[in-house]
Write a protein that binds this DNA or RNA. Structure first.
Lengths: 192, 192
DNA sequence: CCAGTAACTAAACAATTGGTTAGAAACGAG
DNA sequence: CTCGTTTCTAACCAATTGTTTAGTTACTGG
């Protein structure tokens, strides 16, 4: 009996994700979302409840973009070098037409008032924790003991965040140098 | 003949700096600046021209906070270890009552729309370039050749940015681990 | 004391923010 | 066709943004 929806949620969220990714949360207004998503404010609120609702759906869509890279990481038996390859894969994901947008999650955490917007923070924390566990698993496969693996995973999480930030500001070769140098250093600590 | 100013620019900018540092640029409104600086909007505009003017003055005040650490770095003959000490000194500067506010410059660059606000970006870039040159000088003293010193200085700039970001999110011990690990790695590359 | 200049107060400015709502339009089962 | 349900259009909402301005107050050289 009802009228048919003229859009698909997945499709309009894809547009919103790109917009948030390029502009950040606070620099993306509802009217900008309207024009970019191609639907009216009413429809946005009907489908996602609030601006924050749109953003959380965008974060989930962003996370889904990493599936191929994550599957590849999981299935690899290259240990530490698989993590390095994962970092390069993420760098590809950050890449835009001419520059790098960085990691949407890292960007967001850097922009938030921290204490408010707990739902958004929880979404980000969930993805970070997931990646940390992935790193730990790979490091254990690589022969490290649990305690060292935990420490190194923390180090890698910070490093990944750094790569996101650096990719937005510094030339790509400098970021590559940074990755190579970092993993050489980690490898060296594994030798003895 | 004129009436006397009831405040000192330096003093009110100090308050503004703390506010921007904690909240970020976009989350600091003019009315919040009014109450924190303790003077009226009129006076703010008379002294600094615009919100951006207040912010740029705050960035300069922030930069001045580093003078002691920078003098110490310049005068040290400890080469690479002097840079490490400088990083720890900066970490102290970032420290607030209970948590870390990170580096105001790094925070700002992470929050900006990049393409607009060129005056702000120029102010930040100036400080980054200054620090890079400091690092290069120390590395040359440490016996590196020019090309390697340049590369390592770039690496250190990224690392410093990472420390700022990490200090806001991760426990202080993890950040200390990160610094120790990074400088051990750099030292190792200097040995051969 | 007085006049001129500057700094103050407080109200208002237009523009934009995230969010809402009344009514028209489109659908499909009966 | 008609009725009930849902989506859409478009105007509107109060609140807040950065900025300006008219009018008052305070100081000081003459």
């Amino acid at each position: 009996m009802p009228r048919k929806k003229s859009y698909e949620d997945n499709h309009v969220i894809e547009k919103a994700t790109q917009l948030f990714w390029r502009n950040g949360y606070h620099n993306t207004s509802m009217s900008l979302l309207e024009s970019t998503m191609g639907i009216n404010k009413f429809s946005i609120y009907a489908s996602f409840g609030s601006k924050q609702g749109v953003f959380i759906a965008s974060l989930q869509a962003y996370r889904a973009l990493h599936s191929p890279a994550i599957i590849k990481l999981k299935q690899s038996d290259q240990g530490l070098m698989a993590i390095k390859a994962f970092f390069y894969d993420c760098l590809d994901i950050y890449h835009d037409t001419d520059c790098s947008k960085g990691c949407l999650m890292s960007n967001t955490r850097a922009q938030l008032n921290s204490h408010k917007e707990t739902k958004v923070l929880a979404e980000i924390q969930s993805f970070v924790d997931y990646q940390r566990q992935l790193f730990i698993d790979k490091l254990l496969e690589h022969g490290l003991d649990q305690s060292t693996a935990n420490k190194q995973a923390n180090y890698l999480i910070i490093t990944k965040q750094s790569i996101s930030a650096a990719s937005k500001v510094h030339p790509i070769e400098q970021v590559h140098d940074y990755i190579e140098f970092t993993f050489n250093a980690i490898s060296a600590t594994h030798k003895h």
